[in-house]
Amino acid sequence: MSRSQADWTLAAPAPPGGSYERSRTDRTDALFRPRLGLRRFIGTLFAVTCLLMTVAAIGMLVVLLVRVGLDARPWLSRHFLTNFPSTLYPERAGIWSALVGTAWLIGLTSLFSVPIGIGAAIYLEEYARKNWFSRLVHLNIANLAGVPSIVYGILGLAMFVRFCHLGRSVLAGALTMSLLVLPVIIIAAREALSAVPDSIRHAAYALGATRWQVIWHHVLPAALPGICTGIILALSRAVGEAAPLMMIGALTYVAFVPSGPLDTFTALPIQIYDWVSRPQSDFHGLAAAAIVVLLAILLTMNALAIGLRSWYQGRQP
């Protein structure tokens, strides 16, 4: 007796001889052509294909990391982090100025882009009327997020370096980077805000709260993990960008650290680019070591994003 017959017998007791459900099963069986073997085979095939894609994607990444890691191994040391670069003695060269430059750059960038980004997202999501104009604005912001970073470099060069006379300063770099990450932050923050269920907003409004109180007390805290994740991911994009900084003229060889926002600077990606383009193989090893440091920074930032999110979810009450 097949399983389906057993189920049927359970549902309705059989008349004497069991003829009733026998004939019914035959009748309904004729209506279907299950081809279970074929369906299951297609399912397995699909799963295996997806697995292969995953292996291919991760595999390439692993190969890349291993190659870089092997090249970098002999050059990584404490001195590598704390020494200034050297064009003559690769064994004494370090990335101190690039590290500090990157820190300055990201610090200033977040100072500009985070408040502006969150503010814009709150306005667009919570205040602006939903009409064709706000949709147009949204579409344009999404397009801006896809503009190549070199274009932002050109804009930064014309606007901040030349027009505002900021020169090749870390401030000009940070402002350019802010332009670059702003669309990403706005989009991430908007998505986090719109993911807050309306039932929360309505509950707060029904208690006689003003719009500001609803946003400040309920919507923003609920959206904060998502906003923070978006910010950190956007900033980690900025950490790895070289093109706009080269455009605005970040220096490749800097034997000092910036002491203020108007000082010239270098950054990790620029330093890496400089070393890679030198003919001596020692410098290629240095570049690999700098790449490992840059990757470590990026991974730390991403881990921070994840950690922040789960920490917020843990302390909801």
């Binding site: 269920p197 039932s199 929360i200 309505h202 509950a203 707060a204 029904a206 309920h218 609920a222 909801q316 009450p317």
Partner: peptide, 9 residues
Amino acid sequence: FQKPNPFPK
């Protein structure tokens, strides 16, 4: 409201 909607607090 129809569905209970306490604040996540």
